[in-house]
Design a protein around this nucleic acid. Structure first.
Lengths: 223, 223
DNA sequence: TTTCGCGTTAATGTATACGCTAGTGATGGC
DNA sequence: GCCATCACTAGCGTATACATTAACGCGAAA
């Protein structure tokens, strides 16, 4: 693996996990020394993050991690609707039905009960579903745009802390989408995706507005 | 302006105009010497083209210009439909109506009669329209995806030679889209965009299948 | 005290040197 | 005569040195 690829993967994860928060300065030399590589591959990695929109140049000489507030999340989900609804529609039209029938069964069998483990399991299942949709769509332009959008979406996971009820609801929503694709029903697949994105956005915005979590409805605790 | 920016702009235009045809090898040193710069900025430029999907790595060591055949164009227009129909819809919902009323008037006033001049004028008008839609949408994720799609779309202009009748029809289609946005009619804007993209794709595919052009309906002449 | 301007400094932009890998050709063995 | 292996070469990946520029601080003047 190339040093620039490792640098890109590391910085991407740092931004997605929030250890490089919005507004943090991304300096070539500083990051290169942190990863034990030279400026050249680090420069390439930062350039890729810039193309992704995860980093922006605040001034001609200083790069910072891109902002990611509630308005950004609304914009992101607007783009997701355009891309994922269409992708779901196309997958229902020409996807391998057996693949999505199997995924629907996996979703139906998934029961996120415990806290940490279930969330990881859930995200892995989502990743498999996304990959299946990409393969069914078979359109490099659509999947390329979706790849960028998903890179930004991963940042939202750090903001909206895992909510058990929401996780279960999301699994149910994905079950319906997968079933619709397996049934070759483009309209249902698109509309179920729309519903899912609507609810996911609402959950994230609520989680941001109410950082205390869902355990208590009264936001009185610290942090 | 940075050397890497000039290199990117130059290579982008070379690929879009077809002077670097699909499959052509893009070697760092060769291109760097051609533009009189060193490998470092040229490497950055090629990396950006790789992220755009205009260049792909054929093997671990050799980069080539990405293919662009009829199937690619169909995929590209599928992505365009997802993005531009949604963009037109959003622009109709929250765009500045006066801006699009003025654009509609400009489209209505445009009459591509002469050959070369009219085509450039037409493309400039389209670019203004695209910029207005981007501004009205105000969504960096959507406009970013559209930017990439448009970079690929420009390659189709070289394949489908300028067709007067098609140019006039396209102007009329854009007039309707602009009018729909100016009237605040999202449904009409989206459907008019759908119709426009359908006809544009059909025209390009016809032009490719019938390289003799539209002057004679019998494809018998050379080139 | 505040603002403007200049100088210093540090980080970016570019060039180039070095190491490595893969691709290609030739040679030898089967 | 054909295939396999080795050596050579050319181009990429990385490191580093040099040039350039912008950012920051200090000082002077209003």
């Amino acid at each position: 693996m190339r040093a620039s690829d490792r640098a890109y993967a590391t910085l991407l994860e740092d931004i997605q996990r929030g250890s490089l928060p919005p507004g943090a300065v991304v300096a070539e030399l500083e990051q290169a020394e942190r990863l034990g590589i030279s400026r050249t591959p680090m420069r390439e990695a930062i350039g890729r993050l810039l193309a992704d929109g995860l980093v922006r140049q605040q001034s001609p000489r200083v790069m910072v991690v891109a902002d990611f507030d509630a308005d950004d999340i609304r914009e992101l989900f607007e783009a997701r609707r355009a891309l994922e609804e269409r992708a779901a529609r196309i997958a229902a039209e020409r996807g391998e039905r057996a693949v999505f029938a199997a995924l629907a069964a996996d979703f139906a069998a998934a029961h996120p009960e415990s806290c940490e483990l279930a969330a990881d399991e859930y995200y892995a299942l989502i990743a498999r579903f996304d990959a299946a949709v990409d393969a069914a769509v078979g359109n490099r332009y659509l999947t390329g745009a979706l790849r960028t959008v998903r890179a930004h979406l991963a940042r939202a996971r750090g903001l909206a802390r895992d909510n058990h009820a929401r996780l279960r609801a999301s699994v149910a929503e994905h079950t319906l989408i997968a079933e619709a694709i397996a049934a070759g029903d483009p309209e249902l697949a698109a509309h179920a995706t729309h519903v899912h994105l609507h609810r996911a956005l609402a959950a994230i915005l609520t989680s941001i507005a109410d950082p205390a979590g869902s355990a208590t409805s009264i936001p009185e605790g610290p942090q």
